[in-house]
Structures are given as structure tokens and as C-alpha cells.
Design a protein around this nucleic acid. Structure first.
Length: 445
RNA sequence: GGCCCGUUCGUCUAGUGGUUAGGACAUCUGGUUUUCAUCCAGGCAACAGGAGUUCGAUUCUCCUACGGGCUACCA
């Protein structure tokens, strides 16, 4: 069996297209079949080669690998011409002059010759109905009088979408067409072309669309981000894939599916018939899950930050902050102060956590830290605890200013751990800078 | 307008002719905690509406409402 995904290169690959592709691909892979990528670039005005490249890159990143060569419809013009001729020959298509849509059918048996003022229309059956058994929606049927004689070849001699699709599906021997349900109405037209050509009609499965967080259909101009933008946001491909899979497909209550599990269980799950609303929150939850699973080396490689390398120091830093990161990008701000001394302190935080007494506390702490014989998390905690109880204040009166001094933030791992990782020298140095800063502040007041 | 598709907690969904209608995300509460997180425990919350079939419908049928799609010399 063989499926295909057929985007038109008129923009980047957005999340909806990616999901449809994922379903088509998974459907094929779960049945040990092939899935083809076909670029539908018959619209010369809007199709761009750079979009094609972007689409290809997006799939590469996602880990969706298509089989065989990419098919470009723009390469098939002669083939389409040939098939149009055969339709003309067996009288299932006709040349039409068509200024008036009402009168199109009057040209059906006129057998005009083609020129630059005419198009070629498909001769749709006028009675009966066209029906098919959809893989996800069940039986779908429409009366043929609803279908019109659509154009298959433009006046410039180029073929149109609903016709090209059929020719390519035949030539590529596509057995199953998995696509968005916005194509349901096209299916009726296409089925009739298959019939006119005397070819086997593939099986169709129409998957529902994705809606934006506001409930409106997701589109390029309506909040749909490109796959590459999720990458830029620090989303892992496995997280996006897993999330997309669960958006519209389910196998019981299971949420997490590895690549292998996806293909293994795809046929056992159920595809939903209704459109689903995209949720960034849930995507982020999947992302955190896959981030948690990753070992430190892998993580360092994926984070791809200049200051993070394979050193023990980097590893300590990563492991210290990973709990509070849900995207790859979060590691940037979360690790920054381990590599760069804070330069400015937030006034609001200073006001909130520091008082006149703070300098005194911190000076005491500093001298104890300087004298402390060992330098590790528990030893440092001991020192802070002791000073706090000597001074008869809570841990926060000392710990919070210390955190500010070292990280310029109120969001960091345990402060004793931060001290340990930073090292004694750096810790004292930052403490000194902060003390100086506090001193200057008092003068200003 | 015509045609096609759809409708279970706020969101993603499971599920069945008889269930306390289950899980996940979000949210709320509590616990752990030196901050922020993480983590753990618990709570709130749904079968669109109306007929019909049936001993019984969330489940089957029809209608209505609402949502989406198509209706191009776009794909």
C-alpha cells in the first residue's frame, strides 16, 4: 500500500499540515507501506522553491521520512496534457468557451478546438450519485447534480488541481489518500475522474482540521505557527510529534508514544471525526516530559548555547536548573548567571527582600564562608543556618539577599547549591559587588 | 444560498443500550521546599437541545441549533 502527502509550496509547513502528514505517514508505516511527498506546484504565481525547501527541512526535523523521490507536479505537464487528450478522445471532457457559467454545458458536444480563449472541462455525470466509504468518517455521498463540470485545463494549457491529483495518484499507484477534511468535496470530483479514466479508486481517509486556541480554524494568517517556529521556540520534535498525534487520535488513555509505539499502535487507535483545538499548554507539557527523559549529554547538545559545553561545570549547571525549564530556550536565561556575573539588580526585588540590616547579615555570612574549610552544598547550608539562628532571623532574611547577590533573580535552584557550583571565589566576589551596590543605594537615600 | 462534515469537563480525549461517565492538560486546595520551579496528594468540571425506538438511552434514528469546510482558469 502507498499513501502520500501533497502540500502546495505557497508557504511554510504549518502545524495543521504537519499533523495531516504525520497521519498519512503513520498510516503507511503502520501497514508497512510507503508514503510519498508530492509538491503541488501547479500554481505558478504562488509557488516558491524556498517554501518547498522549508517544507522539506521541517519534515526532516520532525523525523518524518518520505519514501522514494519527491514528485513535483510542475514536471508532469506533458503527462497531464496526454491524459486530457485521452479524456477528450473518450468524450468525458470538452472544450468550453465559457463566459457564462450557466451556459458551460452547452459546449459539451460541440467539440470545439482548443485555443487561448477556451478551457477544457470535465464532463460530470448528470444523474445518480457519487459515494465513497471514508476511512474516518464512514459513508459519504452526494447527488451528482450538485457537481459541476469543473475545469481540468486552463486556457494557457496548464492542468488544474483536481485533475493533476488524480493523474499523479494513478501514476504513483497511491492506494490510500489520507488528507484534510477540507478536501471531502474535491473527492467527489476526483472519483469521477478516476472513473472516466477507468482506474481503481483509492481508499480515502479525511482527517479533521485543527482549530486555533480561539476556536477558529488554524491557518497561516490565523495564528498557525510554522513547524520551524516551534523549533525556534525550543520545542523538541518528539514532543511536537507526540502532541500532534494525540490531537485527533487516541488509543485508550495513553498519552505518551515513542516513535516505535506510534507506528506499532496506530492501527489500534481511533481517529476522531471532529476538529481539535490546539493547546500550547499541553504541547509544553509534552515538551517537559521529553526534556526530563533526556540525559545530560544529550541535553547539552540540543541546547546549543555558546557557554554550555561538555565540561563538568556545564553538566552541574544543567542538572541544577533543568527542573525549571520546559523548553530548550529556557536554559538560556536559567543558566546565564552561572557564566556571567549579574550587572544590574531589580529594584523591586531589592526593596522586597533587603532592609537596612541586610548588609550586616551578608557581611557576617561572607566572613563565615571565607573561613569555612569545606565547600559543598551541605557545608554552605550549615553556615547559612547557623548565621540565621545566631542573628535570630529566618533563612529568608539571608538566603534571599544572597540569591539576589549571586543570580540577580528570585528564580534559581537551592541557593547553597548555587554557591557550591559557582565556587567560593566567585561567590565571595559577587557578594562583594552586591555589598558595594547596597552601600551605594543607602548613600542615595 | 446550495452541498458536505462535525458536536462527551475550559481544552485533548476514553467509554458503554443499564458506569459513581474514566484519564490527561489547564485551574483550585493542601503537602514537600530557603526563592522560583519540580514533585506528591486531593478538589472543581462534560454527554448541545428536542422528539422517537426501547423496560432503559450519553450510546441507535430523525429534526433543530451551533461550529467547520467546499462552492475559482487556488491548492
Amino acid at each position: 500500500m502507498k499513501t502520500r502527502f501533497a502540500p502546495s509550496p505557497t508557504g511554510y509547513l504549518h502545524i495543521g499540515g504537519a499533523r495531516t502528514a504525520l497521519f498519512a505517514w503513520l498510516f503507511a508505516k503502520s501497514l508497512k507501506g510507503d508514503c510519498l511527498l508530492r509538491i503541488e506546484d501547479t500554481d505558478k504565481e504562488r509557488s516558491k522553491a524556498e517554501y518547498t525547501q522549508e517544507i522539506i527541512n521541517s519534515f526532516k526535523w520532525l523525523g518524518v521520512e518520505f519514501d522514494a523521490e519527491i514528485v513535483y507536479q510542475s514536471n508532469n505537464a506533458t503527462r497531464y496534457r496526454e491524459v486530457v487528450e485521452s479524456l477528450l478522445a473518450n468524450n468525458t471532457a470538452y472544450v468550453c468557451k465559457g463566459e457564462d457559467p450557466e451556459k458551460d454545458k452547452e459546449y459539451r458536444d460541440l467539440k470545439l478546438s482548443k485555443d487561448e480563449d477556451t478551457v477544457i472541462r470535465f464532463k460530470m455525470p448528470e444523474t445518480g450519485s457519487t459515494a465513497f466509504e471514508d476511512l474516518v468518517k464512514g459513508k459519504i455521498e452526494v447527488s451528482n447534480d450538485q457537481l459541476d463540470d469543473f475545469i481540468i485545463e486552463r486556457s494557457d494549457g496548464s492542468a488544474t488541481y483536481n485533475f493533476c491529483v488524480v493523474v499523479d495518484d494513478i501514476d504513483s499507484e497511491i492506494s490510500h489518500v489520507i488528507r484534510g477534511d477540507d478536501h471531502i468535496n474535491n473527492t467527489f470530483k476526483q472519483i469521477n475522474v478516476f472513473k472516466a479514466l477507468n482506474q481503481i479508486i483509492p481508499q480515502y481517509g479525511h482527517v479533521p482540521m485543527i482549530l486555533g486556541e480561539d476556536g477558529k480554524r488554524l491557518s497561516k494568517r490565523h495564528g498557525a505557527l510554522g513547524v520551524q517556529e516551534y523549533e525556534a521556540l525550543g520545542i523538541l520534535p518528539e514532543a511536537l510529534k507526540n502532541y500532534l498525534l494525540r490531537l485527533g487520535w487516541a488509543k485508550g488513555d495513553t498519552e505518551i508514544f515513542s516513535d516505535k509505539e506510534m507506528t506499532a499502535s496506530f492501527q489500534d487507535g481511533v481517529m476522531n471525526k471532529s476538529p481539535a483545538t490546539f493547546s500550547m499548554d499541553k504541547l509544553l507539557w509534552f515538551n517537559k516530559h521529553y526534556l526530563d527523559q533526556m540525559n545530560t549529554e544529550e541535553l547539552i547538545q540540543k541546547i546549543n548555547l555558546n557557554h554550555i559545553d561538555k565540561s563538568e561545570y556545564s553538566k552541574m549547571v544543567i542538572n541544577a536548573v533543568r527542573d525549571r525549564c520546559e523548553t530548550l530556550n529556557d536554559f538560556s536565561t536559567q543558566t546565564d548567571y552561572f557564566f556571567n556575573e549579574p550587572e544590574i539588580y531589580d529594584q523591586k526585588l531589592i526593596k522586597k527582600h533587603c532592609s537596612d540590616a541586610t548588609s550586616g547579615y551578608l557581611n557576617k555570612l561572607k566572613s563565615s564562608l571565607v573561613d569555612k574549610d569545606s565547600w559543598n552544598q551541605s557545608a554552605i547550608k550549615e553556615v547559612i543556618d547557623r548565621i540565621a539562628s545566631d542573628l535570630e532571623v529566618g533563612f529568608g532574611k539571608i538566603g534571599l539577599p544572597l540569591r539576589l547577590a549571586l543570580t540577580a533573580s528570585t528564580n534559581s535552584p537551592s541557593i547553597d547549591l548555587v554557591c557550591e557550583i559557582l565556587g567560593r571565589e566567585e561567590t565571595i566576589k559577587r557578594l562583594d559587588s552586591f555589598l558595594l551596590f547596597l552601600n551605594d543605594q543607602e548613600k542615595d537615600l
